[in-house]
Design a protein around this nucleic acid. Structure first.
Length: 678
DNA sequence: ATGAGCTAGCTTTTT
DNA sequence: GCTAGCTCAT
């Protein structure tokens, strides 16, 4: 007897979406309409109905978190049957998996390194230096974004179509050419390559693409509105044989166009795939009617959208608060007072302050520190992007993959080995001339006795250590955790940290300890390095009771009982830059961001703005965001400051005492400590 | 080879 | 106002 219990739990539209298994399907899923539930139930349904084995289902997400969540929820429904979902993961992780099997088809070895944005930038800087490009005229950041854009379009350097208008593009292309061949030399890929190489392999080797497209009987894609051109092409290849592709998304929540996302993929899905069935999930299970009405009215101001009407059977709930404050400090103060109130009914973990720009969190941090509300900031510097962590990874990579010049360069003089800029330049020049890796170059130069004596000492010992660590890894079969400990001790890295006793270094040591413990989760160095390349954070449980501070972008996919949305001021939200750069399109994306923000709230939403803000060194007067005029009056309750006379009474009053308190070293230390503990 | 001193730029950041 | 990144001096 089939256990179809999971179907009972669904509403009509959801049920239809789950049961419609064959053929292309587009699920337009509004905020809080249970899209993850539908996706996971679909997978369960396919397996239960014996439509496919777990390894014949491809399920793609954008984030590791979403992938993990999906895996967990499928497992919950299926139990043991869910084992073997080998193709559930992010675009990048699945691409990496495919690419490792066929690496030689694009000139790589299967143990290639995956570099992040930081390394990308370093590589571009190196190239610019070598090619005598003035980085002031052509900034590496710009080059990087252009290269990414080209890769998102599916262009290798030879495919690039230049726009005549822009004469600079020609030099960008030159750099791109060098950059790309350099990556191959380094046996490395960047994030864009993972997907681009796959698509190129599929295009050039029909036999390979057929293996995969035949295997994937069913394909499911989450957050489809965020896919870019190359990702949609990637999907097209993989869906070619069975054409059973279902995509879930919400055009109203497309907020990553600056990452190359094209809503076009979503809006034109039914043109790309013939006989597409479209199902709308419009029943919202998350928010109260008032919150939903405010969000819906706002988003109706957007022109380019599929259009859907969200509804709920839930109660109307509290009116959405709309508050005007004299200054940002008043805003922070009043919000913290409200938090104290709400704390009686809700857990701090279920409250969030969502901001447009991350600097806005500062005002709240100061306030929370002052009155002792515990908080955590989500976002900011990612764990694996911290310098000390990247150093560790670089050591491991050099040991594992000797072509990785970027890692070599990173750690060659960390800790200090008297290998200065001149010596490094010498090594780089020689490597370039003889087309060898930096490591080989260094070895040759030593043989030829062309390195300064003092430098030679440090360099020889480092190179010998590489040999030793590789022997530890390959022949002595020392585990990866132990290996890193050995490396840190023998390289002098541990001593370097221990000798400099300040708070920052203590944090670094803590972070490395955390890294070591995270490494234990992996079977071997190989799988750990793969994880590191594609992950950004070590998943920590939300320890303790803390209110959450994060950007609206970071809040996508999350929900909270109580949500505060401060700083709704023209210029900040919608952000000036966004409108300047992308005009009406930019404005609509900002509005979608507002929509995402509001719809995070389950029970209580507080929108606010300040009339005065200290911004980039100046006090500036602010006016309410145009979005505020777009909110429906009947669902709002406004505070007193909306009354004229109150505004006239307003007297500017800068709190000097507080300012001096902020700058005290003790405060900074305290803040640093709190930040590192979150 | 390190640090003081100056300048430019300052949105978001799934991988 | 803050800070990263660079230059120039020691």
């Amino acid at each position: 007897m089939l256990n179809l219990e999971y179907l009972n739990d669904l509403n009509e539209a959801q049920n239809e979406a789950v049961s419609h298994i064959d053929g292309p399907l587009l699920i337009v899923a509004g905020a809080g309409s249970g899209k993850t539930k539908v996706l996971t139930s679909r997978i369960a349904h396919m397996i239960k109905q014996k439509k496919a084995f777990p390894n014949q289902i491809l399920a793609v997400t954008f984030t590791n978190k979403a992938a993990r969540e999906m895996q967990n929820r499928v497992s919950k429904i299926l139990g043991r049957e869910a084992i073997g979902m080998t193709w559930l993961g992010t675009f990048h992780s699945i691409s990496a998996k495919i690419l490792r099997k066929h690496a030689q088809a694009v000139g790589l070895k299967s143990n290639f390194s995956i570099i992040d944005q930081d390394d990308q930038l370093r590589l571009i800087k190196n190239i610019s230096k070598a090619e005598n490009i003035d980085t002031k005229k052509i900034s590496p950041n710009v080059i990087q974004s252009i290269i990414d854009r080209w890769k998102n379009k599916g262009w290798y350097p030879d495919d690039v179509i230049l726009r005549k208008r822009d004469p600079l593009e020609k030099s960008f292309l030159e750099i791109y050419k060098i950059y790309q061949s350099k990556l191959i030399d380094l046996n490395s890929t960047d994030f864009g390559d993972l997907i681009l190489h796959c698509v190129k392999i599929f295009e050039r080797n029909k036999d390979i693409s057929e293996i995969y497209s035949r295997n994937f009987k069913y394909i499911l894609v989450d957050e489809y509105q965020d896919t870019n051109h190359i990702q949609s092409k990637w999907l097209l290849h993989l869906a070619k044989y069975h054409k059973n592709i279902s995509c879930v998304g919400d055009d109203d929540q497309s907020i990553y166009s600056w990452r190359g996302a094209e809503i076009k993929n979503f809006l034109e899905f039914d043109k790309t795939y013939e006989n597409t069935k479209i199902i709308r999930l419009e029943k919202n299970y998350r928010s109260t009617q008032n919150i939903l009405s405010v969000a819906s009215k706002l988003i109706e101001n957007n022109q380019s959208r599929v259009g859907k009407k969200l509804f709920t059977n839930g109660e109307s709930g509290d009116l959405v608060s709309l508050n005007c404050y004299r200054s940002v400090k008043d805003e922070a103060t009043d919000i913290s007072d409200k938090i104290e109130e709400y704390k009686k009914d809700f857990s701090l973990n279920n409250m969030a302050i969502l901001v447009r720009a991350i600097f806005q969190t500062r005002e709240f941090e100061e306030r929370f520190l002052k009155i002792g509300i515990p908080y955590r900031i989500i976002g900011g510097i990612k764990f694996y992007e911290r310098a000390e962590i990247k150093d560790c990874i670089a050591y491991l990579r050099v040991t594992y993959q000797d072509q990785d010049d970027l890692s070599f360069e990173r750690i060659i003089n960390v800790p200090k080995r008297s290998i200065g800029e001149t010596s490094l330049k010498q090594i780089i020049e020689f490597a370039k001339k003889n087309k060898v890796t930096l490591e080989v170059s260094a070895r040759r130069l030593i043989e030829k006795n062309e390195i300064k004596p003092k430098t030679k000492l440090g360099l020889v010992s480092l190179l010998n250590q590489f040999e030793k660590w590789r022997d530890d890894l390959k022949n002595k079969k020392i585990g990866h955790v132990k290996l890193l400990q050995i490396i840190l001790d023998e390289s002098g890295y541990s001593n370097m940290l221990k000798n400099k006793k300040d708070l920052e270094n203590e944090n670094r040591i803590e972070n490395i300890k955390e890294l070591l413990s995270a490494m234990k989760e992996f079977d071997n160095l190989e799988s750990f390095l793969e994880h590191v390349s594609l992950a950004t954070s070590i998943d920590k449980n939300w320890e303790g009771e803390k209110i959450n501070l994060m950007s609206m972008h970071a809040s996508k996919g999350l929900e909270f009982d109580v949500v505060f949305l401060p700083g709704w001021e023209e210029g900040l939200f919608p952000h000036q830059k966004s409108i300047e750069e992308k005009g009406e399109k930019g404005l609509e994306e900002e509005r979608r961001l507002a929509y995402v923000g509001i719809t995070r709230a389950k029970k209580i939403a507080n929108i606010s703005f300040a009339m005065n803000r200290f911004y980039q060194g100046d006090w500036i007067d602010c006016i309410a965001s145009r979005f505020i005029d777009e909110l429906p009056e009947e669902n709002l309750k406004k505070n007193n400051y909306f009354k004229e006379d109150q505004i006239d009474d307003f007297e500017f009053n800068q709190d000097v005492e507080f300012e001096s308190e902020i700058q005290s070293p003790g405060w900074k230390r305290y803040q640093k400590k709190l930040k590192s503990n979150q």
